[in-house]
């Protein structure tokens, strides 16, 4: 395994009418080739914008702090992603070395162009294909994500496909360029479990085949357990826990991670009501002081939670958590 992407001190704000919104707050992580990282967390915690930052793809009102640094390691050396400006420079990461499966399936297909045409155009833009080869490869990819009649679907428009098929077509398109890094934002949310299993297998095969790294955003912890090597948990723009998948799922440390696991609907207990993490998500304009989770935490260790931001602590060599419970010396 070699280094693929390093994210250091990523802080991302959005300019809005009501002021600056902090969407990502000083986040660092790394991913190697052939590694699958699961990114989970509350809705609005900054997963999608973190993922988009890896392609320098956030909306125009995004502001990155000068300390923020994202380095993508390519065959031609390291690329400082956030310094890319021109469309030509950006082509290195967008649809080239990095591919993204977007959370919003409709948004990734132009409505008036057939699915196939879009796939072919993308391949012609980024690879050495003839038109005929590009078409053949596109149909093969559609087939591999389990779309029947791929040759016919090739000529259809996004609105003619069911939600799940659209999602699979999008996965096929993202994988067709054989990226080094695949960012999959909720790629299986509209898929039934049998197809989901198929898509997960396909992604695992591709990890092996192309030594691809995957950042897998999902709220489905079952899918994380089945796919990821490691897991990062976000809350209100902060990375609050990270570690190998077994440790985070079986031995979670952060009260928020524990709450997420407790909120899962369990098939072996249909009688108990579902238990969400109590309390409301704070507005991003009023980020809580101290620990960002303190307004909803049932395990607060004292005022320190309200005043001092917990640092990331090592539970062991690979498992980290940011919570005062695990601070050896309270500040």
């Amino acid at each position: 395994m070699t280094a693929l992407i390093d994210v250091e001190n990523l802080t991302l704000k959005f300019r809005t009418d009501e002021g600056l919104i902090t969407a990502v707050d000083n986040v660092s992580f790394s991913l190697g080739t052939g590694e699958v990282m699961g990114l989970v967390g509350e809705s609005g915690s900054g997963k999608s914008v973190t993922a988009k930052a890896l392609m320098h793809l956030n909306a125009k009102n995004a502001v990155y702090t000068p300390e923020s640094k994202i380095t993508l390691h390519t065959e031609n050396g390291p690329v400082d992603v956030l310094s890319l400006r021109t469309p030509r420079e950006l082509n290195i990461v967008r649809g080239g070395a990095v591919s993204m499966i977007f959370q919003e399936p409709m948004a990734s297909f132009a409505p008036a162009i057939s699915i196939g045409k879009q796939m072919v155009e993308q391949l012609l833009l980024h690879g050495d294909y003839t038109k005929e080869q590009a078409k053949r490869w596109s149909i093969e990819m559609l087939d591999r994500v389990g779309i029947s009649d791929a040759a016919k679907r090739f000529d259809q428009y996004a609105f003619e496909l069911s939600g799940g098929m659209r999602q699979r077509a999008m996965i096929a398109m993202a994988l067709s360029t054989q990226p080094k890094l695949l960012i999959a934002d909720e790629p299986t949310t509209a898929l039934d479990v049998t197809i989901q299993a198929q898509v997960i297998d396909l992604m695992k095969d591709l990890v092996e085949e192309f030594h691809m790294g995957i950042v897998f955003i999902t709220h489905d912890l079952g899918v994380v357990a089945q796919t990821a090597d490691k897991v990062n948990v976000m809350y209100l723009g902060r990375m609050i826990e990270e570690g190998p998948v077994r440790d985070v799922i079986r031995n979670s440390k952060h009260p928020y991670t524990q709450g997420l696991l407790a909120a899962l609907p369990k098939l072996d207990d249909l009688d108990s009501p579902l238990t969400p993490v109590p309390g409301d998500i704070p507005s991003p304009l009023e980020r809580p002081s101290g620990c960002v989770f303190h307004t909803r935490c049932s395990q607060m260790v004292g005022d320190v939670c309200k005043t001092v931001e917990p640092r990331e602590r090592d539970i062991d060599a690979s498992h980290k958590v940011a919570c005062h419970i695990y601070e050896k010396v309270p500040a």
Binding site: A197, Q226, R250
Partner: peptide, 30 residues
């Protein structure tokens, strides 16, 4: 039955035990 067996397990060591459906999803036009 196949649907129920494919529900992803929360146990990371219980990978790939789901009873997988093989074969293509038939085309709705054929």
């Amino acid at each position: 039955k196949a649907l129920f067996s494919a529900i992803p397990s929360l146990d990371p060591d219980d990978r790939g035990t789901a009873q997988k459906l093989t074969g293509e999803i038939p085309s709705p036009t054929n």
